[in-house]
Design a protein around this nucleic acid. Sequence first.
DNA 1: GATATTAAGTCCATAACGTAGACTAAATCA
DNA 2: TGATTTAGTCTACGTTATGGACTTAATATC
Lengths: 394, 394
Amino acid sequence: MDQPVRHDSMRARNLALVLGEVSRGGPLTRAALAEATGLTKTTVSKLVGDLLDARMVTEAAAVRDGERGRPGVAVSLSGDHLGALGLEINVDYLSVCVMDLTRSVRLRRTQAVDNRYSISTDVARKLRKLALEAVDEAGLTIGGAVLAVPGPVDPARGLLHGAPNLGWRDIRPAELLDLPVPVAVDNEANLAALGELWFGSGAPDFLYVSGEIGIGAGLVFGGALFRGTRGFAGELGHVVVDPGGPPCRCGGQGCLERYAGQDALLQAAGLLPFGTDAEPVGGRGPAGIATLVERLRAGDGRALDACEQAGRALGVALISAVNLLDPGTIVLGGVFAPLFPWLSGPAARSLSRIGHAAPRLEVSAVGPDAASLGAAAQVIEQMIANPATHLSRA
Amino acid sequence: MDQPVRHDSMRARNLALVLGEVSRGGPLTRAALAEATGLTKTTVSKLVGDLLDARMVTEAAAVRDGERGRPGVAVSLSGDHLGALGLEINVDYLSVCVMDLTRSVRLRRTQAVDNRYSISTDVARKLRKLALEAVDEAGLTIGGAVLAVPGPVDPARGLLHGAPNLGWRDIRPAELLDLPVPVAVDNEANLAALGELWFGSGAPDFLYVSGEIGIGAGLVFGGALFRGTRGFAGELGHVVVDPGGPPCRCGGQGCLERYAGQDALLQAAGLLPFGTDAEPVGGRGPAGIATLVERLRAGDGRALDACEQAGRALGVALISAVNLLDPGTIVLGGVFAPLFPWLSGPAARSLSRIGHAAPRLEVSAVGPDAASLGAAAQVIEQMIANPATHLSRA
DNA sequence: GATATTAAGTCCATAACGTAGACTAAATCA
DNA sequence: TGATTTAGTCTACGTTATGGACTTAATATC
């Protein structure tokens, strides 16, 4: 931000401008790019030339749209050369994906592993193997990776402050991975929000609510994440729903997580005994939720009640979130996605008591690998925003 | 953001870089500026020349710090030419201040007026008169103005959505004022937060809580305001403290405002009857609060209880705010400032139940005209960030 | 089918700006 | 007094975008 502008950064900026336009606007001719960016045709031609040399864009066949005049040559992102790696460590699985510059997923690998109270170096070794195989197979030049972890992260220092469900504290996962590309680390909810941004409904401003064992939220504004001072923003799970409510492991009382977290839901539905670490009926995680959905479909009263209560609490927490953050819409993801038909009604009723227009509640359109998709997409976004660093004639 | 970079914008950017450094780092020689910005001495000299021509900076006498070598000429912001206007319309008063480029307040004018359920054009006329007199007297070239109003604003369109305590709805106050300079409009809490930023403790990241009739909050991040999608962010007053609590005029139940808003406080302390529009003992506004402070000092039990309750509720709301926004510190302003000794204890106790380290609670160091100071400072910041628009040789 | 028209893309001369290093100015040190 | 050191200016140069002329490749018109 407080860097001087020299000729080279001027060029870098304009290069990013052109590439960004290509990325957003699909295949465009040089003339259309000049129009869109406000640069002259001459300049655009030179910039596109550099991008072609760097294999970041390709020329398609001439565009003949039936108009008079010489047809333009469409320039579009090239998926053949550069790629990005998305990684995820979560409680029940490891996940890897390789994405090309066009944001197409080239390859996915998921490995079911129980990482509860695991040793971080072991997990890292497994993920490393998975990642290297995937990169090898995809055959792209990987420019970087982002790793999603289930806990608060300081992205600037790559520090995972703590992942309660893994039993990890103050770890630098990027160093453990030791991959031959730069690895950034971020929170799972944040990256799932980015996954929703790129592969979901397409809204540019929303609050993504990630229902997992804990409840997180990623706030996306104009296509960028809002992180807070220390990267702890979006801890929706510990918003107070009832100050006289039951105690929470965070030290507080009446946190949302105690009403709408996965364990609370399963307990209320009678699928998980009230001792925290017991094994639930139908298994924890996806399986437990699948059982819950079955019972909801069957009209089980206890299950329906559990969702009613959870939805209402979620709505109350969202009132606070809307008043403080003013998100465009609210997207429910994670385990809230399959439960959406039963949660959204009560949540919307709570939420509607807000003064001004309440934002819409939507289901996440992405799915369980939102975080690793978002992670890879984040790398791609960086590449498109900084094409100069990938130019061959550095 | 998606503008092409040409030679002129390159220059504009570097000009802003140099001026920003002068603004932050106090008087600096050209050599020191070259060091700080990363530009060459030649370039800095040329840029400083332009800034001198525009009378945005002045040269002081040579700096002789006892070192060897030719002494440098200190360049500092000039307070003699450009200035900014800060305006505020609030429930009990109108306020105007003129500030020069160095952020020194040149002139303040406050006029006590009861603006409850007033006619907007009348109020605008009074403020216009006050503003024109102030500008005339200050004798500076005014580059712009910002107006603080007590209600949610869309700053991009200059639209005040509603000011319940004034009885206004969907108004464009800048047009009513009809001043000969561009007038931007913003929320009072936001601008008070900026006032705190420039004239308070100096922290770059904090949540400013503005206790007035309503309770607002301005979130400052790295010296910039966070506004939310529609500019409604920071409505701390309607964060839910108790979902079973009393109804609020916003349509919700158990909002913070019902526990810690000025009227709620005065009512709980027995200084305001429970009919909303009755006249309180000792007067509403500052006078009412002054009476409350007196009673607190005297050890009045009802007053102490009122603050205890309000503080506790405030703390609960702040737990949610901290979890969602992750502010660096929390600054209490408005009527919360004089009540700080009695509020901060209970609030901090509620807040300390948060999992990770709770941010510090501080008193606002600014005072009641934080909003108009922040408004003027906002204009100055714009001028310093865009010096090219004020260059004579346009 | 030949020619005019239209639009895409390239070429070339020019202008703006920052850089690098030489140069001048003004102080302290010995 | 002269050497040294630092501030600031001057000059030649390189990079980049611009604007308009030019080339290319299509459609439209006769």
